[in-house]
Nucleic acid binder design. Structure first.
Length: 489
DNA sequence: CCAGCCTTGCT
DNA sequence: GCAAGGCTG
């Protein structure tokens, strides 16, 4: 005790000195150790790092499949932090309350995270930042969920891009900061704050229904994502520009679920793609363009958040979409029983695995919004509940693209013919036969797994006859085009 | 203002 | 060849 200092009667713990106070890193859709700007910066200070994930109302609001997938991601990420000598602290509640309490418990004066761009997250993060700073806790968000910050890409007249190709041309030559390494060490705090158990988070068992198939495709976590990227670079990328359209073969990177949860960073993918491009690999450019589509979805979401909830071109509000989610036709679409093979194969693949090939996504979306004249929002919601790679911006942009109501969308009158598409992209029926058991003497396990997965109340049996089309392609096309001709705008 | 252009298609 | 019309420079 120094002279002149008045000893307090009640012994209160000294707050840690600022240079020793821990830094809280709040993990959301960025479940990785490498190329994580916030974690990297925190580790570089040499101060203790406390990683936290919060089950807040936005997590509770997730669809069943993405919630399950997030649970898997958190489990693997927690293991990875353990292996690095650290921990993932789990807490439930409103993010601000949780972070405020955790900061008080641990003496932390800094909370850092990776920036989000969807309107719900932006609104929440704004409240969190203001609330923390009002209590003297510094909040810092770092870039890295997208390649290019949405406000840094402008047209010649200072607006934002609404068409993909000019956007691509504007960014393709830009530099992207080289990925950061994983921290070499993550100093632990003097005492670990308490954590909830992931098992108690009830992230659901949505994908148990496809357990065998899902397990075979297991791709959870940073290590798995890096392995998959490497495998894709080894032999997938050369033919990517051609094979990516063929749902019957493994021709895509399959990284969407990892990108959705940030188990790999888009910058890591970008630099890998650039290296492949410099090596003259044929599909590299197409791969880079797909990464930029993901950015474009966030770019548009940032500038026009209503992309996620209503027709981006609001005049489409006057279009006669059917809004009922419970008609026989919509039920057939959801249950993969439209009688249109390409549509049903896609829907069944998604129901069992939580994934759907991009080509199939376009076809099921076109069939719902055009042949069935149903509002894209109903399809968007179904995807939100069933896709393990669900991403708010990309799902919305995809649906509005298919429906014709979105920016740079396919024109409404451009109606996909699901039979022609089959001939073009699944000529040997590898895809549809994989997912449709009816009529096959020896259906493959995937096709049978669908009948195991669906709820009993759907009343499906693999020995049933394959249904007749709920709407014939020709009839649906004519109906859609007539509705378009008679539109009120 | 205009000219050129616009992921994925169909008959 | 058709199907509109908006976007960008």
């Amino acid at each position: 005790m120094r002279e002149g200092r008045v000893p307090s009667r009640v012994a209160t713990p000294e707050p840690p000195l600022p240079e020793r106070s821990p830094i809280i890193v709040w993990f959301r859709r960025d479940l990785r150790l490498s190329d994580h700007a916030a974690l990297h910066a925190a580790a570089r200070t040499g101060r203790p790092v406390i990683a936290v994930a919060i089950r807040d109302p936005l997590v509770d609001a997730l669809g069943a499949a993405p919630k399950w997938r997030l649970g898997e991601g958190l489990r693997v990420f927690g293991d990875a932090l353990r292996a690095a000598g650290s921990r993932l602290i789990l807490r439930t509640g409103d993010a601000l309350d949780v972070l405020q309490r955790l900061a008080e418990e641990t003496g932390a004066r800094d909370v850092w995270w990776m920036r989000a761009y969807d309107p719900d997250s932006v609104a929440r993060d704004k409240i969190v930042k203001a609330g923390l700073e009002a209590r003297g806790v510094t909040a810092m968000s770092c870039a890295g969920h997208v390649l290019f910050e949405p406000w840094t890409v402008e047209t010649g007249t200072g607006g934002f891009y609404k068409v993909y190709t000019p956007f691509w041309k504007a960014v393709r030559g830009r530099g992207v900061v080289a990925p950061l390494p994983a921290p070499s060490r993550l100093p632990a705090p003097d005492a670990w704050p308490g954590s909830e158990r992931l098992e108690d988070w009830r992230m659901g068992r949505a994908m148990d229904r496809g357990a065998d198939i899902v397990a075979r495709w297991a791709n959870v976590g940073e290590r798995a994502a890096q392995d998959r990227l490497e495998a894709f670079l080894d032999d997938g990328i050369d033919g990517y520009h051609q094979t990516r359209d063929l749902p019957g073969v493994v021709g895509t990177s399959n990284l969407s679920e990892n990108l959705a949860l940030g188990e790999i960073s888009v910058a890591q993918c970008w630099h890998a793609g650039q290296r492949a491009r410099h090596e003259g690999r044929a599909g590299a450019e197409t791969f880079l363009k797909e990464l930029v589509w993901r950015d474009f979805a966030y770019h548009l979401t940032w500038h026009t958040p209503h992309l996620l909830t209503r027709n981006w071109r609001t005049e489409w509000d006057a279009f006669g979409w059917r809004e009922e989610a419970d008609t026989d036709e919509v039920r057939a679409w959801k249950q993969g029983r439209t009688g249109i093979a390409f549509v049903d194969a896609g829907q069944r693949e998604m129901y069992v695995t939580g994934r759907m090939h991009n080509r199939a996504r376009m076809i099921v979306a076109s069939y719902l919004t055009k042949h069935l004249m149903t509002h894209w929002r109903i399809g968007q919601k179904w995807f939100e509940d069933h896709l393990i790679d669900w991403d708010p911006a990309n799902n919305a942009l995809g649906w509005q693209w298919a429906a014709g109501s979105g920016p740079d969308a396919t024109p409404y009158f451009r109606v996909f013919n699901p039979v022609t598409q089959l001939d073009r992209f699944d000529r040997d029926r590898a895809y549809v036969d994989r997912w449709i058991a009816e009529g096959q003497a020896n259906p493959p396990p995937e096709a049978l797994s669908y009948f195991e997965a669906v709820p009993r109340r759907w009343g499906l049996d693999p020995d049933d006859a394959y249904p007749d089309p709920v709407v014939e392609p020709g009839e649906g096309r004519a109906r859609a085009l007539a509705a378009y001709e008679n539109r009120a705008f």
